[in-house]
């Protein structure tokens, strides 16, 4: 319980992915309710975040057979307006994708493709919400470079 849970390259991939999925779900619901309340109208942003969530969920399902349930899940407050929200999620999804790509099982290697789609959707969502933010990722895996 004391262990630092957000360390990038520690721990198994499945619980990290599940946590990413929960955070994305929280962010989607938050952005959607704010869109409904006309507090922050942005129908494209939450739609794209939802697409990223679906891709991550698909990756989670590929891992599901091998993982248990995490009993101690904390609900986090996701803030879509925070520019670090996207950078942080991207970094963590990339770390999971790198781990999935190097996996022994072909099923879990397929999860890497889903995570790349999720990264694409995340970038597209960021493009809508923060048009002024740099489109280049702050952290790239070596495979991403030509």
């Amino acid at each position: 319980m004391i262990a630092r849970r957000d360390d990038l390259f520690s721990g198994r991939v499945a619980p990290r992915l599940a946590r990413i999925e929960r955070e994305l779900t929280a962010a989607v619901v938050d952005a959607q309710s704010r869109d409904w309340a006309a507090d922050r109208p942005d129908r494209v942003g939450f739609a794209r975040l939802g697409q990223a969530r679906d891709e991550v969920r698909r990756a989670v399902r590929r891992y599901r057979r091998f993982s248990g349930f995490s009993l101690f899940s904390r609900r986090r407050v996701a803030d879509v307006d925070d520019p670090y929200f996207y950078a942080d999620l991207r970094r963590r999804i990339e770390a999971c994708a790198a781990a999935a790509r190097a996996d022994r099982s072909y099923k879990r290697r397929a999860a890497a493709t889903d995570l790349e789609y999720a990264l694409d959707w995340l970038a597209a969502a960021q493009e809508v919400s923060h048009p002024q933010a740099p489109s280049r990722p702050l952290f790239t895996t070596s495979e991403g470079e030509p």
């Binding site: 989607v28 619901v29 938050d30 959607q32 309710s33 704010r34 409904w36 309340a37 507090d39 129908r43 494209v44 939450f46 739609a47 794209r48 939802g50 697409q51």
Partner: peptide, 29 residues
């Protein structure tokens, strides 16, 4: 917004309506 978020998380009908809304927005996008 906080009350709507609570409803979207707790109420089963609202949750499904939110899901339909999300799908519709994704299709338009």
């Amino acid at each position: 917004a906080p009350e709507l978020r609570r409803a979207a998380l707790a109420d089963p009908v609202t949750r499904r309506l939110a899901e339909a809304d999300l799908l519709l927005c994704q299709a338009v996008d």
